[in-house]
Design a protein around this nucleic acid. Structure first.
Lengths: 195, 195
DNA sequence: TGCCTTATAGAACATTTTGTTGCATTACAG
DNA sequence: CTGTAATGCAACAAAATGTTCTATAAGGCA
């Protein structure tokens, strides 16, 4: 039972998905076809069809590949400012310097009509949100936060703005901007209660 | 000079773009083709080709149609809480109950490789950001804001989170959530300076 | 009304893309 | 060395895409 897999299978899979990913980055989801991947890799179309009977499934595997970037373990030593800056720095890097920044909008668009793509995004986001939430929770346990901080809301703010700027508004994400962003979030979380 | 346009031209344009828009909503950008629009409208393919020699241009016109929802004039009478709630309420309605909520991610995805689509998004966002900025500026002039409020950052936060929730994270936008969101933004803007 | 212009529908067609199959070749595992 | 299985390739069918032509009909105008 459980024969070891022919290494050629993994090889074509990897090759094809890498190609799909780079096409996704450069030309968008509309350009991801059996033909374009075959041309880019030298893998024959028939082989691609054998691996992925539906183009949908190929696309989704490529999405999944883009979405499984290494997760940075959250730092929770404190202070919040430092931990959050670390997490947000990672997010900025992911959006600016990995395929995810280019691919995410493509996945989101497909997710509108494709449950699998929706799941890719949802799982990805859930993980990221949790990893930032952990940072806040740790800060809370160190009594760094003021009373009744709406942690979940702050987490969403922290994450939403960079995504919005990069994916939707087409605005740049640089470290100067990030500093200001982290500052504002931290201020909101740590400053004394207001009324 | 300047002959009045044959009403048939406008009629087909409208009919075709309406169909394109509803296909965009229901099936995503991948399903927007001459054939699908022809099938939905009864307009013959040859006519569609005459109006839009490139599918790209048809798509972009549909995008533009989705993006030109009526702009709500910002209220600036104060207090900030009320004005902002009004603006955000409009945003929520636009995202929940107009094609824009479904179509925006499609435009964003295409914008990655299509300058015209990028422009549609950029113009749209610029207008929306400005219209919220106006609300804050008015509040500032009424001395409702604390010193050194980073208006631009707050505006982006106000807008980014609903977009993030709806388009990217697939989270719901309801009025309960919106209240909390507006509260948090207002608190940050109006509460006394902190150090 | 009648005439001219022009938009449209529909068919016919070439081209490209997509999906499918059969077979020879080649890599892998034992 | 041998059987199994994955690949490449060619051939093919089916569908989508793009282009052109002609007859028809609707609109503009005197």
């Amino acid at each position: 039972m459980n024969k070891p897999e022919d290494p050629r299978l993994a090889a074509t899979r990897t090759l094809a998905l890498d190609a799909a990913l780079s096409i996704l980055q450069e030309k968008g989801v509309l350009a991801v076809t059996y033909a374009s991947i075959s041309a880019k890799t030298g893998i024959s179309r028939s082989t691609l069809y054998r691996h992925w009977p539906k183009l949908e499934s190929l696309r989704n595997d490529a999405f999944l590949r883009a979405a499984t970037s290494p997760i940075f373990a959250p730092k929770t030593n404190g202070p919040l400012r430092a931990d959050l800056a670390w997490m947000m720095g990672n997010l900025l890097t992911a959006l600016n310097e990995t395929p995810w920044g280019q691919v995410a909008p493509q996945v989101v668009a497909v997710a509108a009509t494709d449950q699998q793509a929706r799941t890719v995004i949802d799982d990805f986001m859930k993980d990221r949100i949790v990893s930032v939430e952990v940072v806040f929770t740790a800060a809370k346990e160190r009594d760094e936060l003021r009373e009744n901080v709406p942690v979940r809301q702050l987490v969403e703010m922290a994450i939403a703005v960079p995504y919005f700027r990069k994916l939707i508004a087409g605005l740049p994400l640089d470290h100067e901007w990030l500093d200001a962003h982290v500052d504002l979030i931290c201020r909101l979380a740590t400053e004394p209660p207001l009324k």
